[in-house]
Computed example of a mutant assay.
Amino acid sequence: MSTISLPIPGAAAAGAPHEPAKRIALAQPRGFCAGVRRAIGIVERALDLHGAPVYVRKEIVHNHHIVAELEKRGARFVDSEEEVPTGAVCVFSAHGVSPAVRTSAANRRLDVIDATCPLVAKVHQSALRYARDERTILLVGHADHEEVEGVRGEAPERTLVVETEEDVERLDLPADAPVAYLTQTTLSFDETTRVVEALRRRFTDLVGPAGSDICYASQNRQNAVKTLARSNDLVLVVGSRNSSNSIRMVEVAREHGAAAHLVPDAGHLDESWLTSVSRIGISSGASAPEVLVRGLVDRLATLGYTDVEVAEGTPEDVVFSMPARLAAPGTGRVPRTSLADEAL
């Protein structure tokens, strides 16, 4: 790890000499992934070009702070495209939608801007391919998650959702059934591997993606959390309670030996978690802005945690292109925006 100097409130109030030094280790990487930056940038750019209101089907990303900030700027979040006025601008969230939603939006003559993460879109294309091959699709994920709902909608009559190894054993399919598996992109890599291994044991005619469907950002953040868990008393993951990838990070930390909690923002920090804790690891989910991490660091500084280090980790330089209609001229990218480019 490398120590960094930050303007931390309360730095002069560090613990007494006889107390263990209280320190924070910040995971690297953490926070926004390329798909989240793109999705937030799409909404901001749509507001710039079309003016308010711009309607967004579901939360653009699963983070309460981002949703609230975009609402202040004129975004209107709705549960269904049916709530969007006929002909209005409607952004589909980063989690993707089913073909039925696209048809409904077309029937309402909505001006659709698709913010689906390209990695999620890839899973949709795989589902279509396996359906054309007349295979039963075994979709590993959480049935009530928006991403799973969208992928399942590509071939609902051919798709079964499985979440655990026990679900695999309960499948009412013969061992030689032609099947294919896909996975939700924000799952725990280790847990998903166990479910896929159960599928391989269960079926003799099983195909799947050449690599993992778990997105690079989820894998990188989970690996960074494993490192934090091995060297800290407590791991705090900044993220909203409906953020699948943030929840998985908490689970990964616990599986690797650390106490761990999800913290939507600094106001949700429970000081009882800090009893006898001298070393705290902090990370954030792929949809959590850095301003919330900074708020938590500042809050902990007032409690004596003034030594802040940044862990070494996997660098990320992935950038996803914007829809052509929104990109800055000649770049293919969204112009820099305050929400999508926050940094510590």
Rank of each mutant, 00 (worst) to 15 (best):
L187N: 07
T183A: 15
V225S: 10
V195K: 00
G239L: 01
D176F: 02
E197V: 04
R200I: 01
V238C: 14
R200T: 12
Q184D: 07
V195G: 09
F189R: 08
A180W: 07
V238L: 08
P209K: 00
E191R: 14
T192P: 13
G211V: 02
T185I: 02
L236G: 10
V195I: 13
T193G: 15
G211P: 12
L206F: 12
A177L: 02
T193M: 05
G239R: 01
R194Y: 03
D176G: 05
T183C: 15
D233C: 01
L234H: 12
P178A: 00
S212N: 11
L206V: 08
R221H: 09
R230W: 09
I214N: 06
R194C: 13
R230V: 06
A210Y: 11
A217W: 06
D233L: 01
A198I: 08
T193Q: 15
L228F: 10
S218M: 08
A177I: 03
G208W: 01
T193C: 13
V207R: 14
R201N: 14
Q184T: 03
I214F: 03
N232V: 01
L187S: 06
S212Q: 04
I214M: 06
T227S: 13
R194S: 15
L187A: 01
Y216E: 11
Q219F: 11
A229R: 05
G211L: 04
P209L: 00
R221C: 06
N220C: 02
Q219M: 09
N223A: 14
R241L: 09
S218T: 15
V238Q: 07
L228G: 07
P209F: 03
A229T: 09
T186C: 08
G208V: 06
G239W: 02
T185A: 09
A217C: 07
L199I: 05
T204N: 06
S188A: 12
S240D: 15
A198M: 08
A224K: 10
G208T: 03
T227W: 05
A217F: 10
A180S: 05
R202P: 14
T186Y: 04
R221Q: 11
D190N: 12
